[in-house]
Amino acid sequence: MKLKHLSLSLLTFFLCILGVFCTASYQAQNVAATFQALTSVKVCTSSNSGNQLLVQYAKNKGIFQKYGLNVEVISIESGTEAAVAMIAKSVNFCQIAGSSVINAVIAGEDLVMIAGIFNQYPYAFISVPSIKTPQGLKGKAVAISKSGSSTDAAIRAALKYLKLNPDKDVEIAAVGGEGERLQAMEAGRISATVLSFPLSLKAKNKGYHTLLDMTTLDIPYQHTVIATTRSYIKANPQVTVNFMKAIVEAIATIKKDRKGAIATLVRANKYDPKADAAILEEWYDTTIQKKIAKVPYPTLKGITKMLGDVKVTNPQASKFKAEDTVDISILRNLEKSGFINNLYKPK
């Protein structure tokens, strides 16, 4: 009798073990199948600044995965280098400065803007505390990231607005990203630069002087865009549609997620969530809520003006219209279908 009970117990034990392994195996197969079903996509961001966080936010929140995409986010320090990466097919999409795409298109490269994330200047033109007027910059060095970048275009526009000649009155030095430019200013190597929110607010709190808040100018300018190549769209139409679905959903989500937006910025830029709480809140209100459109069309007026500026030094730009640099067909279809409008309906 005892032997019989022992045999039943052993049988029950082994069946339980088998059940555990079968369940674990089934779950592992499901996870593997889900992973295999996702399309791998490489996406670059050309800065970690406050106006370049939408892609990272979408990844953090699992929005790309929702649309069948396994996205690898690659940080590239400048728009110029990011454009090169797309041209070389090292990445498939990029959140990048519009000026870098425009310059590449003028040069005959296969790049195109499919969304406009920030359609105005996101910068403040900041100087060291000792310089409180534009005239004080004469003969001094001002910093950009790289020649041909959005910071180059912005600082030239700021200088012209302030009645200074960017080619005669100052020395324009390529220093690097926002962090490097602020460090160069703190070290006394440069006298001014452009910084985006919230770093510009942080610099102001440190005693640096705001010569011009470019966000108040209301001048159309294609600053941050989502870009890819026309050849990639043609070869991967559904992937491109799914990517844009994720982007517009990320916009709708981040506008309702103050905590998640700030957390993404804090992780990317090492802000102190307590000490920097006030500027982080102001960044969210002024940048995320007010500057990103629900339907992120590029600004054709802004691109037209940018082409005109480039034409001064590169006559080749006169051969192009703003429409030659964009493809809004996917975004237009998402809007007409009601997909974007549904993202903002109460659930």
Rank of each mutant, 00 (worst) to 15 (best):
L3H: 09
H5W: 10
L6R: 13
L6S: 09
L6K: 11
L11Y: 06
A24L: 11
S25Q: 09
Y26M: 12
Q27A: 04
Q29N: 11
V31L: 14
A37W: 04
T39C: 07
S40F: 08
K42D: 12
V43I: 13
C44G: 05
T45W: 00
S46Q: 04
G50Y: 04
Q52L: 02
Q56E: 12
Y57H: 10
A58V: 15
N60L: 07
I63Q: 00
Q65I: 02
K66V: 14
K66G: 11
V73A: 05
E77H: 07
S78N: 09
S78W: 07
S78F: 03
A82P: 01
V84C: 04
V84L: 11
M86P: 01
K89R: 14
S90I: 07
V91K: 03
N92T: 04
A97I: 12
S99Q: 10
S99G: 01
V105W: 05
A107E: 15
M113T: 03
N119W: 04
Q120M: 12
Q120P: 00
Y121I: 10
P122D: 04
Y123S: 05
A124C: 08
A124R: 13
F125R: 10
I126C: 07
P129F: 08
I131R: 06
T133K: 13
P134R: 10
P134L: 12
L137V: 03
K138W: 05
K138Y: 04
S145D: 15
S149F: 08
S150K: 05
T151C: 08
D152V: 09
A158V: 08
L159A: 02
P166C: 13
D169S: 06
G179H: 02
L182I: 12
A187M: 11
A187Q: 08
G188L: 15
G188Q: 10
I190T: 05
S191E: 11
T193W: 00
L199A: 04
L201A: 03
K204Y: 06
H209P: 06
L212N: 01
D213Y: 08
M214Q: 14
T216D: 05
T216E: 15
V225E: 06
I226T: 07
I226P: 00
P237Y: 12
Q238Y: 02
Q238G: 02
V241T: 07
V241E: 15
N242A: 13
A252N: 06
I254Y: 02
K255P: 03
K255Q: 10
K256P: 00
N269F: 09
N269E: 14
D272T: 06
K274A: 12
A278C: 07
A278H: 11
I279T: 05
E281S: 14
E281Y: 05
W283M: 07
I288N: 06
I288K: 10
I288E: 05
Q289V: 12
K291H: 07
I292D: 00
I292G: 01
V295P: 02
P296E: 06
P298V: 14
L300N: 05
K301S: 12
K301T: 09
I303K: 04
T304N: 10
K305S: 08
L307Y: 02
L307N: 00
V312C: 03
N314E: 14
S318R: 01
V326F: 05
I328Q: 02
L331G: 03
R332T: 14
S337G: 08
N341H: 07
N342Y: 03
K345N: 10
K345C: 11
